[in-house]
Simulated assay, not measured.
Amino acid sequence: MAGFEVQDLFALLTAIAVIASILAVAMPFLEKDRLGERMHEVASERERIRKRERALLNSGGKEGRISLRQEPKELIVNIVDRFKMRDAFSDKETRIKLKQAGFRLEKHVMTFTFARIIGPFAGLLISLFYVFVMLKPDYPPMVNLFMCVLFAYACYYAPLLYLQNVRNKRQASITRAWPDALDLLLICVESGMTAEMGFQKVATEIGTASVELAEELTILTAELSYLQDRRIAYENISDRTGLEGVRGVMTSLIQAERYGTPLGDAIRVMAEENRLARMTAAEKKAAALPPKLTVPMILFFLPAIFIVVLGPIAVQYFTTH
C-alpha cells in the first residue's frame, strides 16, 4: 500500500510537470491582444467622463445628478444587501486598491464583496464533499473537518491575494515604462504640444511597452479635457497608480501650472530622477542575485557535477572489485 501511494504521488507530480511544460510552451501563442481590448475599455471610460461632466454642467452641480456608473448584476447586489455587507469590504482603502489593480467600476467593488462573502461557504461545501464523500481518508473526523475549515478560510482570503497580485503586476508594468513615457512627454512638450496632446501622444506610443500605463494616460487625457479643475485629474492618476514616481511628477506638474514654471524643465528633472531610480532598482536586484543563486547551485548544480566527475570512477571501481 505504501509503494502504491508513492507511485501515485510520482505519477501525479510527473503529470503536473508535463502539463506545466506544455502550458509554458503554448502560453505565448494563447495571449490575446490586450492593447486593443484595454484601449476600447478606456474609450468607453472617456465617454462616461464626458457625459458625466456634461450632465453636471447642465444641472448646475445641484442635486439630481445623473449616475453613469455601470451597475452590477442584480443577483450580486441582492446577496450583498441580504448579508448587509455592502460597506464591509468597500471602504476607501479597498476602493483605492481596486482602482490600482485596474478595477474602477462599481460592479467590480460589488463583485469583490460578493466573492469574499460566498467564497468561504463555497470552499467549505466543496471541501466537505471532496473529503467526506470522494476522498474518505483514514484520519479522525475532527482532523478532516479542520482541513475543510482551513480550506474555507483560505477561500476567504483568496480574493485579497488575487487583488494584491494583479495590483503588483500592474504597478510593476507602469514602473518599468514610466521613465520612457516621461522622455516621450518631454519631447512632445518641447516640440510645442500642450500637456493634453503630449499625454495623448505618449499614451499612443507607450502602449506596446505597457498597456496599463497607456490606459492610465488615456484616462488622464480625458479628465484633463473634461474636468473643471486640472489638479483633480493629476491627483486621480496618482491615486489610481499608487506609485511615488507618478505622484512626484504629477505634483510637479500641478506646481508648474500654478506658478507658471515651464513644463519642460519640470518634466526633464523628474524624468532624470525616475531614470536614476529605475537604474538603482536594477542594480539592487543584480546585487541580490548571487545570494539567491547559492542554494539552487548547492542543490542542483553541484550534485550533477559530482555525478559526472565521480560517476565513471565509481563504476570502474565497483566493476574491478
Rank of each mutant, 00 (worst) to 15 (best):
F83M: 07
M279K: 14
I307T: 02
A20C: 10
K97A: 14
M39T: 04
A287Y: 03
I187P: 00
L185H: 07
F132S: 02
A314T: 08
S127N: 05
L243V: 11
A122T: 06
T251L: 08
Q164C: 09
V18Y: 02
E212D: 11
Y317K: 14
R176S: 07
L217E: 02
H321I: 12
F132H: 03
E215T: 06
K51V: 13
A15Q: 11
E5R: 15
I305G: 01
G123D: 00
L57G: 09
Q7E: 13
V131F: 04
G311K: 05
L9R: 09
L163I: 15
N165G: 07
P120N: 02
V77H: 01
N236M: 14
R275Y: 08
I49R: 07
V6K: 06
F146G: 02
T280H: 07
S225F: 06
N274Q: 12
Q316S: 12
C148S: 04
A172E: 14
S252K: 08
Y157E: 00
H321V: 09
E5N: 09
E216Y: 01
N78F: 06
V211H: 00
K99F: 09
G102W: 02
E37D: 05
K284T: 05
M279R: 10
D265Q: 08
R278I: 12
I96E: 09
S238L: 11
M110R: 06
L98Y: 01
M279D: 00
R34A: 12
E74Q: 08
L224G: 03
A181K: 05
I237K: 02
M270W: 00
M297L: 11
E212K: 01
H40P: 02
R46I: 15
P72T: 12
M250R: 07
R230W: 12
M85F: 07
T111V: 12
V308H: 00
E45I: 12
I307D: 01
G123W: 00
